[in-house]
Amino acid sequence: MNKVQNNKAWFLVLPVFLLVAFSAVIPLMTVVNYSVQDIFDQNNAYFVGLEWYQEVLSDPRLQDSLARQFLYSGTVLLIEVPLGICVALMMPTRGWTASLSLIVLALPLLIPWNVVGTIWQIFARSDIGLLGYVINGLGIDYNYTSNPVDAWITVLLMDVWHWTSLIALLCYSGLRAIPDAYYQAARIDRASSWAIFRFIQLPKLQGVLIIGVLLRFMDSFMIYTEPFVLTGGGPGNSTTFLSQTLTKMAIGQFDIGPAAAFSIIYFLIVLLVSWLFFTTITHLDKDKVKEQSHD
């Protein structure tokens, strides 16, 4: 078959090309550009190569907040994913209670980040906040503005409150998609509830869980607004996560070079970890087959 060469077709892709260029490529390249230069003023910019990257990677302030960030995202995932699955399993499947629980679960997702921060900032205060007051009333010394552990717990609690619904709703939809025949076959095979969960529900939830885990990882890894409103990163630096450190560096101190270098590293970390999650989960099955075919 002879294909007709018509180079005018390239013009048809031009709008998309421009759109992608302006929305993603050019801004990213600007950051790359800053990250390899030391700029004093408009006429004095020096190419410094990877110097900013080296400096940033050896900066203890950034190392600390990176460690905090990983600890935070890891904890968030470890709490929210199992909790979300549990909630989804317990949700009613039909009738008005099903609709009601869907609405109630969707509510936290509709609240803007800084409003969530404000809600918890007030809710957890030990003088006027319901939660803080009750905890202190029980004889437990709790103050998120002065105690780092309390601050951490509060930030985590806030994230769990805000985002567990997302996992629960995703899993709920995944569970509804399992045909009845699976449960019927499992009953005939005398499977226990645990076996039904382990061998039917969990494998069938794999697809939605990939999405859930990725979304929650990326979101929590980039968290800024909520802890900023709640604790301002304190007490000390205990709840200062990566994006806040970055903002301080870029806008507070106007260290554009290191901040740009750090942005690139930050971006690559998110990309790398997301890729790791994705490939691990999707290859989970195939690996098992390989193992067994070798014995």
Binding site: Q184, I188, D189, R190, A191, F199, P203, K204, D285, Q292
Partner: peptide, 28 residues
């Protein structure tokens, strides 16, 4: 159902995706 000593094969094959054929057969 589980105490009735019957087995049922459905219109669409029901298999336990995460298991091997062997484990599927051994499951009950």
């Amino acid at each position: 159902t589980q105490d009735r000593n019957i087995a049922q094969v459905f219109q669409f094959p029901v298999i336990y995706d995460s298991m091997t054929v062997y484990d599927n057969l051994a499951f009950p």
